[in-house]
Amino acid sequence: MADDKIKKMIHDSEHGMTSIVKTIVRFVIGIIFVFGVYIILYGHLTPGGGFAGGVILACGYIILTLGFGKILGLKKLSDKVASVLDTAGVLVFLIIGLAGFTGGYFFLNFMAKGEIFHLASAGTIPLMNIAIGVKVTASIFAVFIALSIFGKFVSALGESSEENRKGSNEE
């Protein structure tokens, strides 16, 4: 089963870094994701927003990839899913902007404002924050994938690409 394979991969010393790193990553990863989602969702109430939260989420995926190896990282968020999410984020943002035409002009905040200091307030702003957060998560992780796993650029710099290329051909 695939789950067994992943479980084996988690404890396997061949994939990723040492067990120290893996243990720490296992403790920290949940907190990182929760914090990233918090920063995105509460972007209209407290400091933060879609971009910062998205970068935090992308850092979570990157730490997974660095700690547990590229196979697990790509399993959690593969490059194809990442590019789809990237595109979807931009599209959703644009659609929300275009939906403002229902009330008059581009990027009109056409939804109900709600009560101040409540999570469901400020109309379209939280939705835009979420769209930007998804987009930034996917795209930053995609850059990391492209630079470190596809390995064309990195391999041109050093030898580590050689094993990258071998590994990627095996897939």
Binding site: G43, H44, L45, G49, F107, K113, S121, A122, G123, I125
Partner: peptide, 15 residues
């Protein structure tokens, strides 16, 4: 009042 967002930076950025 206009945007409902208390974080004024986000209000400027997204509205």
């Amino acid at each position: 009042r206009e945007t409902g967002a208390t974080n004024i930076v986000t209000a400027v950025l997204l509205d």
